[in-house]
Nucleic acid binder design. Structure first.
Lengths: 176, 176
DNA sequence: GTAGATTTGTACGTATGTATA
DNA sequence: CTATACATACGTACAAATCTA
């Protein structure tokens, strides 16, 4: 029995808006309204609001009382802090993995990370995805699911600036 | 110009529901509906839903598709993981504070922590609050606001189980 | 298995505060 | 300064899925 997701529409809008931010179809600082978004995605304002408020709580968007929404501008101090915390969490994860007897769990990660130059993937977008998965997988293996969750959220927040540094990775951002 | 809060009603309901959880007026595992909560707080379902979904994202509540809400049951593995991560974050914070030249910023914390037995506060509820503030203040002083935010959220999630261990602290939970 | 009651999910209408001509 | 347009915050109505007798 596959239980239904809780807010299918709102969930979908959430993912689409977030991707629009990551792919710079919504630019940092850009302003917009709930009605615009509702028309853009072909739904009512209700699921849009759910999605927008969730993205606001996660730091991707900003809203002013009865005065419209905006994409959170790039804040490099913020990114510094996020990178800094990522180091803290990953260091703690690695320390725990070092004290672990069974290293076989590291195998799948090693296979990706130690890929020979022949089998190495060249698409920057995919490389970036593999890199994210590697970091996330490392922390997951340490066994603390809360640390893994925070680390995953944190990695997502950094994603936008990582893409800025690999411009070729999203050269096809207008494909969709 | 003091800018208005964004969703005054929803914000208020959010705080009240959270306190109801902390003070065990809403018990772990207890089920309820949006309509009940709307009547309980004298508002419509809209701000209630905003508040409930926020608390769900933060792990305090659970919702099943068209089938009602429930307070997240106590999960001691979860609390172990949260305590564990708290140690990681506070250790990192302390390491940074140790490398810091200027220790004068620690003064206010020391004054609370090193209170003489005479001036020591005896109300367990207040002691608990001071303890939380001490831990939070410590991490804040380390200067990474994101780490401080995560640590603060994490401390809130632990609060309910801390109160379980200090039952006398909320003996008057029916006062209100 | 089915019908009815229940509950959320979404759409839509109204009120209130904001910005601007 | 005032009035008007506009955007969100909240309330309400309805649809769809779930539970239960």
């Amino acid at each position: 029995m596959a239980r239904s997701p809780t807010n299918p529409l709102a969930e979908d809008i959430y993912a689409r808006v977030k991707d629009d931010i990551f792919d710079f179809r919504l630019l940092p600082g850009q302003r917009f309204t709930e009605t615009e978004m509702a028309q853009r995605y072909g739904v009512s304002r209700t699921p849009v609001r759910d999605a927008l408020y969730r993205l606001k709580r996660e730091g991707f968007l900003d809203v002013a009382f009865r005065s419209g929404w905006s994409v959170q501008p790039l804040d490099f101090e913020l990114f510094d802090e996020l990178y800094d915390m990522r180091i803290v969490l990953e260091t703690a994860a690695i320390e725990r993995l070092c004290h672990c007897e069974d290293v076989s769990a590291l195998e799948p990660l090693a296979r990706v990370w130690l890929a020979g130059s022949a089998e190495r993937c060249r698409d920057p977008r995919e490389v970036s995805g593999l890199d994210e998965a590697f970091h996330i997988g490392l922390v997951e293996l340490a066994g603390n699911r809360q640390m893994a969750r925070v680390h995953r959220e944190l990695t997502e927040k950094i994603r936008v600036v990582r893409r800025l540094r690999f411009p070729e990775a999203f050269a096809h951002r207008n494909d969709l």
